[in-house]
Design a protein around this nucleic acid. Structure first.
Lengths: 238, 238
DNA sequence: TGTTAGTATGGACGCTCGTCCATTTTATGC
DNA sequence: GCATAAAATGGACGAGCGTCCATACTAACA
């Protein structure tokens, strides 16, 4: 069974399967749903929310007008499903990056940051989509949940790693260690967010290497024993 | 003469005066323009871009339908003018905060951060507006310029202050000092951006004191001689 | 192979959008 | 106080929106 994404449409099928399974009929249905989701995301990325219309989506999907209503109940629900899908892609990439990492806290944190800044995740397409949803987040409650990179999953992953580093420092009281870990988590995630905004507004001059270096610097300042700046070498080109 | 904001409407009057001056006729005109701008911002903050329509704006402004076209040439140009106005308010607040500060680099940087995090600037209304514009930034070129907190003005202000701190450190080569100042500027601005995103997505649990403290911590790590964590006391409540 | 039920189609619908302009109002300067 | 031009008004307009549904298709199963 594949991962599921939520839809608010038919209560009987509140979840739409993202993986393509079942007999031919089910496969075609799921394929069309995915096509619609991807078309919607392309639309948002290229044209923005304001210009993303049902006509635009179905034209890109090459499917018929009625399918949005049929499969998602309406345009808004399709957009919500698309948001969940985009969020899923973010975490899918993170998980693949975490696979090659042993249980070492520094490596986990580094993998999170590297994944967040990697070209596969941090690119024009995704940044456009993310900020488009966030622009509507406050007025479209369902969107908040997935427009947050730092949702509880990610936060907990990073927080746990920092906790483990902090308690290794015998000079700190347990409570001090907890406080340090909290601040490190907050700062790291804020920096990651800030980098995305930088990418949105200064795409042409954005430098992944520099971005990674700044975050490493912050970590090195809080945990001098565990991080050094030499790690700040990009995984791939630009 | 007051500050001016740009409009793309009539080439003969490419700028719309924000200050209220001149005879009665001019004052009324400027007042109505400002009313429209404020109504548009309220709309965006409360309803989002998607629901911000001409009808909604003029209803809130209590003015007639045709005024948007008359004064701004169309809805989009009004929104652009509104964006410039919002940006102006940000810098106006910053300037008042800088007035009481002498030429000390640390104090300047602290004033920038405190202003950015102050309730007068970082609040639901403004965050909604800022992210609404950013959501359209990529597809609405005119918007990029003012949706950027870190526009050249702010960047230069912070950068110059850090430069002055860095060159005071005699242990650093001039080039190292420059690099340090650049990283400090980048990191500080990214953290500020990250805090705004945190506010957007976690308004209820957002803590200005904690946010300020993290930024101070980053600064203290890069300039241990000039920043300490005790400065992290909020100017007001919340 | 025939029946059925799940899926797909695309046009019609009512509605709201932003624009524009003929008309009215009103401050200004002679 | 009158003539003038600037500013304000609000309804009409066509275009485009999202929704919905009568109809057509087709995979599944007996």
């Amino acid at each position: 069974m594949g991962l599921l994404i939520q839809s608010n449409f038919d209560p009987k099928e509140q979840q739409i399967n993202i993986s393509i399974t079942g007999n031919k009929r089910q496969r075609l249905k799921q394929q069309n749903q995915l096509t619609l989701i991807k078309a919607a995301l392309d639309c948002i990325a290229e044209l923005g929310v304001r210009q993303t219309s049902v006509s635009e989506i179905i034209q890109r999907a090459g499917l018929s007008r009625g399918m949005i209503h049929l499969h998602f109940g309406g345009k808004d629900q399709l957009l919500i499903a698309a948001g969940h899908y985009a969020s899923k892609l973010y975490y899918d990439h993170l998980e693949t990056q975490l696979l090659g990492v042993n249980d070492c806290p520094q490596k986990i944190i580094e993998a999170v940051v590297r994944s967040d800044l990697s070209p596969a995740v941090l690119n024009q397409h995704n940044v456009n989509i993310w900020y488009a949803f966030r622009g509507e987040a406050r007025h479209f409650k369902d969107i908040v949940s997935f427009s947050d990179t730092r949702d509880p999953r990610l936060r907990k992953l990073v927080s746990n790693a920092y906790q483990r580093l902090a308690i290794q420092n015998e000079a700190l009281q347990p409570e001090q260690a907890r406080a340090l870990a909290k601040e490190a988590t907050y700062g790291t995630l804020c920096l990651m967010e800030g980098m995305w905004t930088d990418y949105l507004l200064h795409t042409d001059s954005f430098d992944r290497h520099k971005a990674l270096r700044i975050i490493m610097r912050f970590q090195a300042a809080l945990f001098p024993a565990y991080f050094n700046l030499d790690g700040a070498i990009p995984t791939k080109d630009q």
